[in-house]
Design a protein around this nucleic acid. Structure first.
Length: 417
RNA sequence: GGGGGAAUGUCCCGAGCGGCAAAGGGGGCGGACUGUAAAUCCGCUGGCUAGGCCUUCGUAGGUUCGAGUCCUACUUCCCCCA
């Protein structure tokens, strides 16, 4: 449906966030009537979220910007179980200590996107461990469990994958969707939440919560899912050679984060500007209209805006400047990713291949050797030809570091300490 | 309950007469061309103290000078009969 009356849905719609809504007219009407409360749950399976979650965070952001109250729900309780949806095997079980540490890491990011506070549109940070860990089993079965039809749960696509392949789906995992459904009801009771959002793979789990709400006497609840995001070439978002594109700066520096967006494919620029920046639509339309090599300007703006939201404007501008010096002037920027190395090792002479491994540009000496064979390694901008040479203090350049490059895009400074 | 088939390079799919570091894809990385894009072409895609050594084919044993390949047991999955 198009032609939403509420600012919230209109914004999400025109920016490409909407995949499915359970009752579009009903939700639209509720949004027009006054501030509503909605949430998205985040698994605590790693110490940082990655770009795959950014679209969800942006939905919460817009929710607040358009006059509603967003809740970021930490899955402290549900992560004890692990979401089996569309997975073909069980995840490793996390300990409560792991999960607490993960939540601590994840929370840091949200302050950038949401304004937490008590007002009618103040965001809330809630952990579902608050109630899930206190449940009494028999009580829970009688109050909540009786509303779930196993027949129906078995029919969900998210579990079918496992069942069709006759792979074991433990009772523990099977309960995940019940707990997620219960979360929705519990949040409604505690905060008046009426909307749960999430990726399209969460549709079944969310609708389950709505059904449970009906049976347990909540007001009408709503589901809204975002499309599963892939790049134009079909790759899942957030994967690079070196691993996931983390949001936390200690796992991926602002410069590297900026680079990830700078390298967006042409065909994705407009879509990403709408999803991941807060630039006004007319401005995005202007950038999207740029043709040929001019799209590079749009990509730089995309990279800077996305980075500014996450790491702050200063860090984004600095990243852009480092990139400009490195790529456009070919000059040496002291702000490139830096790896420190004991001065004594340099004095003793460090094998070049080992140096590239230390810098994180190669996984092993063999890999570094192959890259060199292909002409892909550079030391201080000179192509490496002798893989047996060693690096010493004499290789330090004017900034007191050694610049190691893999390909044209990846540069690391090796700095003695 | 009975019968038949399958598990391969820790990214995925997939060939593999007892001599195999193991065909071929996809993906990824690098090079050329460009615009730090896409498409295209080329190279690489177990580890190491590097022409020699070490570790890999579901798990554990066995046969053999030598096992991904043959035998036994186990695990998991697929198909057929009941």
């Amino acid at each position: 449906m198009t032609g939403f009356k509420s600012d919230f849905l209109r914004t999400l719609d025109e920016r490409g966030f909407i995949h499915q809504i359970s009752d579009p007219e009903g939700l639209d009407a509720a949004c027009v009537k006054g501030p509503i409360t909605g949430y998205i749950g985040f698994d605590a399976t790693a110490t940082s979220l990655h770009v795959g979650s950014l679209i969800q965070i942006m939905m919460l952001h817009w929710m607040q910007q358009t006059g509603h109250r967003p809740i970021s729900l930490m899955g402290g309780g549900t992560s004890l179980i692990g979401d089996p949806s569309f997975k073909d095997e069980a995840r490793k079980l996390l300990t409560p200590a792991d999960i607490d540490a993960n939540i601590a890491g994840i929370q840091k990011v949200f302050d950038r996107y949401l304004a937490y506070g008590d007002g009618p549109t103040g965001a809330m940070m809630i952990n579902n461990a608050d109630w899930l860990t206190k449940l009494n089993y028999l009580e829970f079965l009688r109050d909540v469990g009786r509303h779930f039809s196993v027949n129906r749960m078995l029919s969900f696509d998210s579990v079918k994958l496992r069942l069709d392949r006759e792979q074991s789906l433990s009772f523990l995992e099977f309960n995940y969707m019940i707990l997620q459904g219960y979360d929705f009801v519990e949040l409604n009771r505690r905060t008046g939440t009426v909307l749960q959002m999430g990726g399209s793979d969460q549709w079944g789990n969310i609708v389950n919560g709505i059904d449970l709400g009906h049976k347990m006497g909540t007001p009408q609840l709503f589901a809204l899912t975002s499309p599963l995001l892939t790049t134009s070439s079909g790759a899942k978002m957030g994967k690079t050679a070196s691993g996931a594109v983390w949001l936390n700066a200690d796992l991926l520096s602002p410069y590297e984060f900026w680079q990830y967006w700078r390298n967006t494919e042409d065909a994705d620029v407009a879509r990403f500007l709408k999803l991941y920046t807060t630039l006004p639509m007319p401005e995005i339309a202007r950038l999207a209209a740029l043709g040929g090599s001019e799209v590079n300007e749009a990509k730089k703006i995309l990279a800077t805006e996305v980075t500014a939201l996450l790491h702050g404007r200063d860090a984004a501008v600095a990243a852009a400047e480092t990139a400009r010096k490195t790529f456009e002037e070919g000059a040496l920027s002291a702000d490139l990713p830096t790896v420190e190395i004991p001065r004594s090792e340099l004095e003793a002479g460090l094998g070049v291949l080992a140096a590239f491994v230390r810098a994180g540009l190669a996984g092993s000496n063999g890999e570094a050797r192959r890259s060199a064979d292909g002409g892909g390694l550079k030391v201080n901008d000179a192509t490496l030809t002798d893989v047996k040479r060693t690096l010493g203090l004499g290789d330090l350049n004017e900034t007191g570091a050694i610049k190691l490059s893999l390909g044209r895009k990846k540069h690391v400074l090796l700095k003695p300490v």
